[in-house]
Design a protein around this nucleic acid. Structure first.
Lengths: 337, 337
DNA sequence: TATTATTGGTTAAACGTTTCACTTAAGTCT
DNA sequence: AGACTTAAGTGAAACGTTTAACCAATAATA
């Protein structure tokens, strides 16, 4: 049972290889009966085209890479934050609709990812999350179209889809204030310039200032953006402050906080209110349901794919940025004082 | 800036293309200084090999496909059940360690996935979950090594990694009985012969019988395996039965049940106990923490990759099956009566 | 009618590797 | 010294496509 090639289809139909190729690709219009002849033969022989071969000559692989951060070098779980699965899901779906397949890689960015992308002849790459500077340098050299998602990179020349995070932090905090809170803790990842945490923190501060509430550095807590760390921080917030509300910059942290508060028999939201950010599925799973800042993750993935496809087709290099809206989604984790 | 090929490396070093290829692959031992010469030139020129080309001739792509069910045809979210993200994460990690890249595809199985696998010259495919019969037929034709994960397919000839689900259902139910419950609802997906639900149901019945508790068909509830459906079923269980415990055949359902019970102000576990199955991360996120049947998902992914690699290397066709152990992981969702 | 376009198709080069079969030079054995 | 082995490297075919350049026959135009 040898492998069936285009040559076999040519023999079967009595046509040349070239004609068969044209018939399949439609790059040259042929009479319908010829096309029919070819498709019949393909069906009969069970021919499937070899993408390695076509990719070699056409220099197009219909493959896009998706890079997801691996929080700790050598860490195992790629998808520590469910946000990554959710957006990956959307990217995979939308890419498939456009005829692309997706290669996912967790990377801690010290392996040179873009070597790989070139090896595979990838048509484009979607980079999710933030990475160290030198990662983007390697990325620069490769001539592969790139779309960043939530990179929080400053002054870059890439296409990007992201959120208005200052605004998100702002409306979250404003919502809490409007519900009568003025002692509001801010729980986040490490705050570094231009990063997610910093952006949302800016929004937090803005809302406080607007309402003449002093920014208390004692109310700011940071650590890794994960469930366990959030529990620790939540405990500290209870023990070290008199806050009535916690604004967590990620749902996964908010869920950790709620878990810990529940465990400490502190009623959410009666005693402490919790506000999240992302609107992941888990925001709905926990009790009480998490009031959070909603983003349309499906759309985010779709935009990333759309932008990338455009870049692939047009080969245009101009930067393009897409800022998606955010809004408060109300559930039950915030009390009116 | 033309693309750098092996030819350029050959020119740079003054060696032939063949020698460069051998130096890189190590398939022929060459003097260290020659190898060094080559690696230096590669570094200098920034050469990366074109996998399309090598795949074409060597017939090896270092690519494996992972198929994940898309619950409803045309549905968007591929990863409705976090189980899929968790195992995908493990598969991606372990495959990468072995030098493979992973292409994920959601599929509702009516698209002929294996055409795609052949097109891409995939070295192997890991199929997660259960699919309609005809999906496996297409799979048969392709000569690509396959590993199934949780297929619940009867009498097949593929390699597979799965759980002892009858036993899992058994120990879950036994645990509940030992905690004083004898009115135990069973919540699951559609029960069809050989499926997951049926297996776990068998275990459930076995435990009941062993303890002389009659099996009450009124206590069995099924629907889609998702969060929302589980809420509906939980409500019905409360309204239609006098059960003191619910055994959910998947964590995602258990979490839905807990959410609904919380909403109905029914205390878990004081009034109703809930037992899950899978030990996903979300089992830890919810309150009360979900007591569940634990499986080692990382190991499951690793086994799948190992089995597949073995199949790829040895081209041996004998079936191989790997049944991973399960155990009760205690948290707080089951009360002692 | 002579000229030009169009239609339906073919030939063959090119893509960038791997690898089999071969050569040449040097080393080893009797 | 002659025969044999080994080491280091080369030439070129092969993998399965795409596509530019070309051709013959028919249809359209002047």
């Amino acid at each position: 049972m040898r492998k069936v090639t285009i040559k076999d289809v040519a023999n079967e139909t009595g046509l040349s290889i070239a004609t068969v190729s044209y018939a399949m690709s439609g790059k040259k219009i042929l009479p319908p009966e010829t096309v029919k002849l070819v498709t019949n033969a393909i069906e009969k022989l069970g021919y499937v085209k070899n993408i390695s071969a076509s990719s070699l000559v056409s220099n197009k692989s219909n493959l896009i890479g998706v890079v997801i951060p691996q929080t700790e070098p050598g860490s195992v779980m790629v998808f520590e934050n469910p946000f990554y699965s959710e957006i990956l899901s959307s990217i995979e779906y939308n890419a498939r609709l456009q005829g692309y397949h997706v290669i996912v890689s967790g990377t801690n960015a010290d392996e040179k990812y873009f070597t790989l992308a070139k090896q595979r002849n990838m048509d484009g790459v979607i980079v999710i999350g933030a990475y160290p500077e030198d990662f983007y340098e390697g990325l620069n050299l490769s001539n592969i179209p790139i779309v960043l998602v939530d990179s929080y990179l400053e002054n870059h020349e890439y296409k990007e889809v992201k959120l208005d995070d200052i605004y998100g932090g702002y409306i979250a905090t404003k919502y809490l204030i409007e519900h009568g809170h003025n002692k509001i803790a801010f729980m986040s990842g490490k705050i570094k310039d231009g990063g997610v945490s910093e952006k949302r923190y800016q929004g937090y501060k803005k809302a406080l200032k607007e309402n003449a509430i002093p920014v208390n550095p004692k109310y700011v807590f940071n650590g890794n953006v994960d469930f366990e760390e959030a529990r620790i921080l939540a405990k500290r917030i209870v023990e070290e402050t008199d806050c009535t509300a916690i604004f967590c910059m990620a749902d996964i942290m908010a869920v950790g906080a709620i878990k810990e508060l529940n465990k400490m028999k502190i009623k959410v939201p009666q005693q402490i209110s919790v506000m999240g950010y992302d609107n992941l599925n888990i925001a709905n799973y926990c009790t009480p349901g998490l009031t959070t800042i909603g983003q349309d993750i499906f759309k985010k993935g779709k935009m990333a794919v759309d932008l990338l496809c455009k870049a692939i087709d047009n080969k245009e290099v101009e930067q393009e940025e897409c800022v998606l809206p955010v809004e408060v989604v109300e559930r039950e984790s915030v009390a009116k004082l």
